[in-house]
Design a protein around this nucleic acid. Sequence first.
DNA 1: AGTACCATGTAAGCCGTTACATGATTCT
DNA 2: AGAATCATGTAACGGCTTACATGGTACT
Lengths: 174, 174
Amino acid sequence: MSLRYAVLGLLARRPSTGYELTQTFDRSLRTSWHARHSQIYPELAKLEDADLVEVVGHGARRSKTYAITDAGRAELRQWLVEAEPDRSQRSESGLRLFLTPLLDPADRQATYQRDLVHVDQELASLQEVRAEVRAAPEPEAFAPQVELGIRINTVLRDWLREQLQASAGGPGHD
Amino acid sequence: MSLRYAVLGLLARRPSTGYELTQTFDRSLRTSWHARHSQIYPELAKLEDADLVEVVGHGARRSKTYAITDAGRAELRQWLVEAEPDRSQRSESGLRLFLTPLLDPADRQATYQRDLVHVDQELASLQEVRAEVRAAPEPEAFAPQVELGIRINTVLRDWLREQLQASAGGPGHD
DNA sequence: AGTACCATGTAAGCCGTTACATGATTCT
DNA sequence: AGAATCATGTAACGGCTTACATGGTACT
C-alpha cells in the first residue's frame, strides 16, 4: 500500500499531473520508492474515487492536474504517524554487496570498482541538488533529506575504497 | 529475478535446508532482501529443475538439504559480475523519512523519535553480530558487510538526533 | 510532413504476501 | 497426551513490470 501514500505525499507538496509525478518518482524517490506511469495513472484514478485527491485543472495535451484533498491529508498523516512502519527492504544493490565476498579477488575488485563509479556519480548529483536547494529563495524543507543522502553515500564510497585496498593488498592472485 | 540469486548465494556459502534459508533471510538479509518460506520452497524446486542446485541429503522431519551445483555457481557469478545491476530500491522507511517534513512539528518529532529508537536497536544488534564474528575461529568473509551496516546506521542515528534538535529549537508551536 | 517529446491509458504475466494445510519431533 | 517448534508445501490475491496502444503539441 505504500504507493498510495507516496502519491499522496507528492501531491501534498504541490498539485501535479500524473506525468509530473512519474518524473518525480524517477528523480527524488528513486532511492526509496520506485513506480512507473503504468502504476501511477491507475492509482490516481483509485485515489480520486476515494476522494483523497481531486482534479483541479486541465492543461495542454489532455493533462489533468491533481491536488490532495483534506481527507487525503488526514489519511497521509494517519499513515505517517500512527501506522506501524514496515522496515523490510528490497535492494538488489544491497544483495549484491552482501554476496560479493563469494567472488574470487579479481571479480570482487571489478564489482567494487563498478559500484564505486556509480556511488561517485550519485554523490556528484546529490551535491548539485544541494547547491540548488541552497540557492533557492525559500528555505527548502527537504534539504536535510538531501544531506542524509550525501552522508550515506559518502560512507558507502569510503567503505568501497577500503574493500578495494584490502582486495589489492590481500591474498589476491594478482 | 533477484530471489533466485539470493538463494544461490546463500547456498554458495553452505548447503542448507529451505527452513534454514528462511531463517537466514530473516536475519542476515533483512536489510537488503526479504523472502518468506512460501516463496523459498517453490524457488528451490525451480532451481533443482534447472540443475542449479541439488539435494545432497535428507534429515529429520522430511527435511532436504540443498547444495549449489557448478552450473549454479557459474550462473551466480555471471549475475554478480556481468549483469547490469538494477539500482532501484523499495524501502518504506526511506519513503517515510522523505515525507516526514510534511508533518507539523509535533508529529514530526514523534516520528523521528520512533525511528531513533529503532535505529538504536538495530545498532545494538549489529554490534552483537560484530562481536560474534570477531570471536569466531575462522576469519569471516562477511565482517566488512557488518561494519558497513554499523556505519550507515550510525550516520542515520546522528542525522535523526540533529532533526530532533532542530525541531525542538526551531519554529515549533511547542 | 516528419520527428521528437508530452501525456495518458490498458493488458498479460510475474513476483510477493497472507492464509491455509499437513505432518514430524521434542519437551513437559 | 498436549503444546511448542521444526519443516515443507499450496492457493488466492494483490502489486509491479513489460509491452502495447493512442493521441496532442512543438519544432524543423
